Computed example of a mutant assay.
Amino acid sequence: MTETEPYVQRGPGDLVTAEDWNEVQRKIFEDIRKEAKKAADGVVRVPNADDSDHIEGKDLNALTEEITKRVLDQVRGRSGYQQLFKVLKQGEITVLEHKLGTAPLVDAYKLEYFRVVCREDDETTDAYATFFLHHTSERKIRVPGSGSGSSRDSVDIQPKDFPELGVPFAELLARYKVPYTDTTSLDDLETEFWKAFFRDPNDQFNDDQYCHSPWFERCCKEQQSVRQLKEKGDWDDIVFQMRPRKVLNYTDLPLVTGEPPRALTRPANVLVQHLDNNRTAVWFEGDALHDPDEDGVEFKAREYIGVDTFDQELKVMLLLKV
């Protein structure tokens, strides 16, 4: 690609299809591989060097793939697409200064609270989170029961009878431009990640509603580096779990016998108003509505979060696209 020859030619207002995006990815990969090979061929080879075909243990294919991922993440950031995480409070208007130069399409997803097991300061706690860092091997985690002599409880980190959830941690580090090297410890990396993640335009979430798992805590205390995690094969198995959900035309039971069912949308009561070509307002009216209670989960989450916060606050993921 050159500055005057785009990978896929499209005009203003044209729809960018999945096929277009796949073609862009393929051509970016081809260009990077070609340039990387040209640079590698120009290097004076060192006789008898066992790793002369590798850089930091990676061959040309692995290096090309890693560079391509970073380039694509930058492309997404410049494509007029934004992903925001906001805390909407009852009766307050949140103004999004997206600076996209036109009114974007806005899609809203409620961030569900889900049960997790947090480990911090040598203490394991049962919590309800919106964001959770863990290892893919942690599908169930035990947590001490409440009260003396209580048996240990088992918490499902992945939902039952549902596809596995989790965004690779490495992908988020690239998206939020968190710098690190192979000698950076996981402990320091997590600290810098949360700083970047909760930076404007995202909101700061309550610190008791995001955490990491016992596996993550153990690696932090051992000061394991990125290099060590890669060598052990754990680096790609660290994931960031969240549960943004949207259900349209959800049929609820009538409040009064004999009345027809209500048609609800999720997230509940979220309203969007474009203020101008660079600002959009978002707010919600009334109490936050949550999913029907299953096995007392909603009651326990409400108790953990706090009644006022649970009823008068809505955590959402907003997608903005030009």
Rank of each mutant, 00 (worst) to 15 (best):
K86V: 11
H274N: 04
K300P: 00
E5F: 08
V272H: 02
N48Y: 15
L229E: 01
P6Y: 06
H134Q: 03
E313D: 03
D207P: 15
A108E: 04
N202S: 02
H98C: 01
D20M: 03
G149D: 06
Q82I: 11
A108R: 01
Y210L: 11
K58G: 01
P292A: 03
V307R: 09
R218Y: 04
E294Q: 15
R76T: 09
F310K: 01
D20V: 01
P168D: 11
T64Y: 02
P47E: 15
V43I: 12
V44R: 11
T184I: 07
D182G: 13
V43M: 10
T68L: 03
E120V: 04
Q9Y: 13
E97K: 12
T102I: 09
K140R: 12
P104V: 02
D59A: 10
T181E: 08
G77Q: 04
V24E: 14
V117H: 04
G13T: 00
Q9R: 14
D14I: 10
A281E: 11
V297Y: 06
E222N: 13
E30L: 08
E123C: 07
G286V: 05
F114A: 00
D207A: 10
D203H: 09
Q74F: 06
S148T: 13
E5I: 07
L320N: 10
H212R: 11
E92K: 12
P201Y: 02
W21S: 10
T17W: 04
D188W: 05
V116Y: 04
D276I: 01
A174D: 07
L319N: 12
V155T: 02
R76L: 14
V239P: 07
V316D: 09
K99C: 10
D126F: 00
A263R: 01
A127F: 00
R119S: 15
G101K: 08
E192P: 03
K195Q: 08
S146E: 15
C118W: 01
R262Y: 02
E171M: 02
D287Y: 04
W194G: 00
F284A: 02
F310H: 12
D311E: 14
N48W: 14
A36N: 10
V256Q: 11
D182T: 05
Y128L: 02
I55P: 02
E5K: 14
L88N: 06
E222C: 04
F29V: 09
K246S: 14
R266T: 11
F162V: 05
D207Y: 08
T184E: 13
G11P: 01
L15W: 10
L319I: 08
N61Q: 14
N48R: 14
F29M: 11
E294K: 15
H212W: 12
E123W: 07
E112S: 05
C220Q: 15
W215P: 02
H134P: 00
P159G: 07
E303V: 03
D295C: 05
K27Q: 15
T4F: 14
P6S: 06
K140L: 10
L289T: 07
W235V: 02
K86R: 12
